[in-house]
Design a binder for these strands. Sequence first.
DNA 1: AACCAGGCGCATA
DNA 2: TATGCGCATGGT
Length: 287
Amino acid sequence: MLSTTLGPKPVFRPDGVLLPVQWTFHLADTLDCGQAFRWRELPDKRWFGVAGKKYCYISQLDSHIFLEDVSKEDFEDFWRVYFDCDRDYEALRLRFSQDPTLKRAVDHAPGLRVLRQEPWEALCSFIISQNNNVKRIQGIVQRLCESFGEPLSPGIYAFPGPEVLAPLTPEDLAPLRAGFRARYLIDAARKVSEGAVRLDLLDSLPLEEARQELMKIIGVGIKVADCALLYGCGRVECVPVDVWIRRVLEKLFPQGLPPCAVGSEGLAQQFLFHYARTCSEAFDIRE
DNA sequence: AACCAGGCGCATA
DNA sequence: TATGCGCATGGT
């Protein structure tokens, strides 16, 4: 599904980068659908977010997405991958539309994209996500970055690396108010920084081995592992099953996801997750 | 004031 | 293998 025939190319200008909306890219659906936790919509409707060691302001225009003050180099080296720009989402939409139920989910948010985040950042974010809600996940991640992340610009902080968190204690993390998840973050940081868990192998390992590698970490079960693999390693064949997806699968796909989703099940999952959460009466999956 | 939130670890059978 | 419970915190 990777394609070089995406149509209009990005336009590089001195004041930023323009992405054609023919790529099917909707900011709100993509940045506020529970896959990343560092994006905020500002009062002027721009979105601001930090990812890795980069940050940017983005806005949704009629025919383009505008990445403010982003250089061609930063786009090519970072945001292009982050925003999954080399995937043909129009072709994906057509393929998923072969199944009537999946089509409804895709039509509900056709501009939804699955972001390719940093593995460590995705891992930590979804450790924090367990038995938690999106608002509080966002708050904990923000305090984590403000407390321990490298300053990129006044008031803007990178996500702290594993080597920063590894020597800390749960008491050090108390200001995050992460609760029982604090010791999970520290265990993850220690094992990753010591090399006991190898994040660099996750995109090439067979899926089950990649899962087991992540599940060496206390507080990482199959769901958190699958989230790290899908959102942090581009493993789009991987389906994190949370309570929402479990209900969707039970009610709508008792035989499993349809053939048109094979190989991209994780992407299908994201459309279904978003549809179930924002349009539950259509699915009728609540009791 | 219980119950829930993109789960997981542990005890028990 | 399969349940059920507690877990920190904060919002309804």
